[in-house]
Design a protein around this nucleic acid. Structure first.
Lengths: 372, 372
DNA sequence: TTGTACGCGTTATCAA
DNA sequence: TTGATAACGCGTACAA
C-alpha cells in the first residue's frame, strides 16, 4: 500500500491525472459531480501532493531560510527564539517551510544562502541582527535573492529599499525614562553597551532625549555607564551609578537590568516596584519581577514573513497586516511596549531569621549590603 | 544568464548530460581528461545540482524535521537552543537540511510529521522532550517514520528499540551530591519538580542515592522540597531547606538554583564557592557563577543526527561516534559533567561604602544579609 | 568510456 | 469540461 500519487489516483478513478490536479489547484474548472468524486477519493486515500514534485514543476520551493546563530547570551537570546517560533508559525500558515542553516560570519551566511538558492532549496531568506555597515542586504540584493530583514538598515537608509522591520528602541527607552520621571525619580541613569552605531546607540538615545528634555540635564553622560553585556557587569554599573547619585535606571539589556536589580533590591526606600527598566523582556526578567521593554518580535516576524512570501507568490492583496509607521519603501518601525512589573514574591525571611534570629525582617530589606 | 543545469552545461561542453552527472556522482567512470574539463566548467559556472530535482529522482529529500516548542522557560530553554544548533550543524555536515515546524501538542506533532512525510518533504525527524507514556515513538514507529529521540523511552524500555540518546541525569546529581559531601557538607538538600515519572524523578534519584549511601540518611525526603520550576520558587525552597538545617543544595534546574543562589549568597561562612549545584548549565548560571551540571547536548545531537541519516543513507560504516553506555538496541545514555564555578566577580564595593561609608568591604563578604 | 532513453510526480498548454 | 502531451532537472539502466 504505497502512498497514492496523482496518476495512481486518476487511474483508480478512471479520470486523467490532470483532472485530479485541477480539483486541487483549479476546482472551478471541474464539473461539480466529478470534483466531489475526486475530492472524496483524495480524502479517503489521504493523498497529499509531493512537495518536491511541486517545487520542481513550479520552480518554487516554498521554503525560506534562516540562519541559526551560535547559542547566544541565552538571557537575551530568548528574543531570537520568539522570533524564530513565530516565523515558523507564519510560514506554515502560508504553506511554506523554514529551513535552518549555520554560518560562522556574515560572509559565510551570504555564501550559504547563495548555495541554498542555487540548489533550488529556498525561495527567500530572513536576516536578523543587522548591523551598521552590514554587507548582507547589498550583496543579497545584487545577487537577486529575496530577503526580509529583522533590523533596520543602520546607516544606509537612503539606499536601502529592501523589506525590513525593526523595533523602535529609542521610543522604548524614551517611554521607560519618562515613566520613571513621572514616578518622581529625578536622576535616571543608563547602563549601555560599548559605544558604537546601531541598536545600543538607538536605545541610549531615547534615554538621553528625555533626560535632556524633562530633567534639563546638559550632559547625560554623567549618569551613563557603558560595559560589555552581562549580569555581573550590570551589578557593577548599577553600583557605580548609585555612587554617582542616580536613583533609577534604564538598561540596554535585561542582563544589565538583572544585575542592577540585584543591587537595587536591597535599598530600603523601595517597596515592590524597582526603578529599573530592562530591555527585551526576557524570561528571567519575568521570573524575578523586573520591568522591561517588550519588543513586538512576533509582529515583526509575522510582518516579514507575510510580506516576503506574498511578494514571492504575487498574492499582494492583503493589506490587513499590522504596519506601524512605514518608513521608506518597505521598512517598518514597530513600537515596543513598556512592561511594568512588581517584584516577584521575595524569598521568605527564614534565612534572615536564621542568620540573625532577632533580625529586622519586617523592613522589607533582603540581602542588604552590610559592612559590619 | 540563468543558472546552469546539467543539460546546459553538457551542451556547452559538447558532452552528454550523463557525463556531467557522472563527474559528480561517479567520477571514476569518466576519462580523466574529460573529467577535468567538466570539473573546471562546473567550478567556473558555479553549477550546483538542484536539490529538488535530486530529491524527486532519488526519492529522498535529505531533510529532517524538528518541532519547535513555544518559547519555553528561556532560562532552561537554552538547552534546546544548543541542541538545535548542533543538529543543524551536524545535518549540514552530512549534506542534509533541517526544517522546523510547530505543534500545539504531541498529537498535532504526529500529524504534522505524517504530513511532512506524505508530502516527501522529509526523510526523518527528531523528537525531543520525551515523557513517560509518550505516544510519539510508538505511533511514528507504526507509521514507519524514521526518527531519533533526544530523551529515553521513559517506562517502556522493554518494547522500545528505537534510536534515542539521553543524558544520565541520575549520574549527574550523584556526582554533584558526592562532590558536596566530599567538600564537607553533611546536610545536602534537594529542590525538585513536582512528583512524577521522568526527568525530574531521575535527577532526584541520584541525589537520594548518595544521601542514603554516604550520609546514612533513611528518609532523604526531609531535605527535599518540591515545587514548580522557577527562580522565585527556588528562593523559597532554599529558604525552607535552610530552615530545616541543610547546608548545601542540589537542584533539578538552574532556575531553582538561581533562586537558591540568591538566598545562600548572603551566608557568611562561604567564600567564593556556593554549595549549590544546578542543572543544565544555563547561560544565566555561567553569568552569575553558579555551579551546574552540563548536559552533553552537543554530543547527543551529533550522535542522533549521525545515526539517523547514516541509517537512511545506508552509510553505516562509521563507528567512530561517541557512544556512551549503549543500552538496548539503539539507545545511548550520555554522562553529564559537573561544572564547578566560583562566584562571578561581585558588584564593586562602591554600593557598600555608600550604604555604610565605613563598611568592612575587605572581608570578602558581599551583599551579606544584615539585620542591624 | 560515453551517449540514449526513461521515469520521478507535478503543473501548464493545448486540443478535443 | 476533460484528456493527451510536454516539460521541470536529475539519476540510472542499458546500449553503443
Amino acid at each position: 500500500m504505497s502512498r497514492p500519487t496523482l496518476v495512481s489516483l486518476a487511474r483508480e478513478l478512471g479520470v486523467s491525472r490532470q483532472t485530479v490536479s485541477n480539483v486541487l489547484n483549479a476546482p472551478h474548472l471541474v464539473r461539480p459531480s466529478t470534483r466531489q468524486r475526486v475530492q472524496e477519493a483524495i480524502e479517503r486515500s489521504g493523498y497529499r501532493p509531493s512537495a518536491v514534485a511541486q517545487a520542481l514543476r513550479r520552480k518554487k520551493s516554498s521554503t525560506i531560510a534562516m540562519r541559526m546563530y551560535p547559542t547566544s547570551d541565552g538571557i537575551n537570546g530568548a528574543v531570537m527564539d520568539r522570533f524564530l517560533h513565530r516565523v515558523v508559525e507564519q510560514a506554515e500558515s502560508m504553506g511554506h517551510r523554514v529551513v535552518l542553516f549555520t554560518a560562522a560570519d556574515d560572509r559565510a551566511e551570504i555564501g550559504a544562502l547563495r548555495d541554498l538558492i542555487d540548489r533550488d532549496s529556498i525561495d527567500a531568506c530572513l536576516l536578523t541582527s543587522t548591523t551598521a555597515g552590514d554587507p548582507r542586504p547589498a550583496e543579497l540584493g545584487a545577487a537577486g535573492i529575496a530577503f526580509g530583514a529583522f533590523g533596520r538598515p543602520w546607516g544606509e537608509e537612503d539606499t536601502a529599499s529592501h523589506l525590513w522591520a525593526d523595533v523602535d528602541g529609542r521610543a522604548g527607552t524614551r517611554a521607560a525614562t519618562e515613566h520613571l520621571i513621572d514616578r518622581g525619580y529625578r536622576r535616571v541613569g543608563f547602563i549601555g553597551w560599548p559605544d558604537g552605531p546601531g541598536v545600543g546607540q538607538d536605545r541610549l538615545q531615547g534615554w538621553a532625549d528625555i533626560v535632556r528634555e524633562r530633567l534639563g540635564v546638559d550632559d547625560p553622560d554623567e549618569w551613563l555607564v557603558r560595559s560589555d553585556d552581562g549580569i555581573v557587569q550590570g551589578s557593577a554599573a548599577a553600583t557605580e551609578l548609585l555612587r554617582r547619585g542616580c536613583d533609577a535606571l534604564v538598561c540596554t539589556s535585561d542582563s544589565f537590568a538583572t544585575g542592577a536589580f540585584d543591587v537595587f533590591r536591597g535599598r530600603p526606600d523601595l517597596d515592590g516596584v524597582l526603578p529599573i527598566i530592562g530591555f527585551d523582556d526576557t524570561p528571567v526578567a519575568r521570573a524575578i519581577g523586573l520591568s522591561s521593554i517588550t519588543q513586538p518580535v512576533e509582529a515583526a516576524a509575522t510582518l516579514l514573513v507575510h510580506r516576503l512570501v506574498a511578494r514571492a507568490t504575487g498574492d499582494d492583496g492583503d493589506t490587513s497586516m499590522p504596519t506601524c509607521r512605514p518608513v521608506g519603501s518597505d521598512g517598518h518601525l514597530l513600537a515596543p511596549v513598556l512592561q511594568l512589573r512588581a517584584l516577584a514574591a521575595a524569598p521568605a525571611p527564614a534565612l534572615l531569621s536564621r542568620a540573625r534570629p532577632d533580625g529586622d525582617v519586617g523592613s522589607g530589606r533582603l540581602l542588604e549590603p552590610t559592612g559590619g
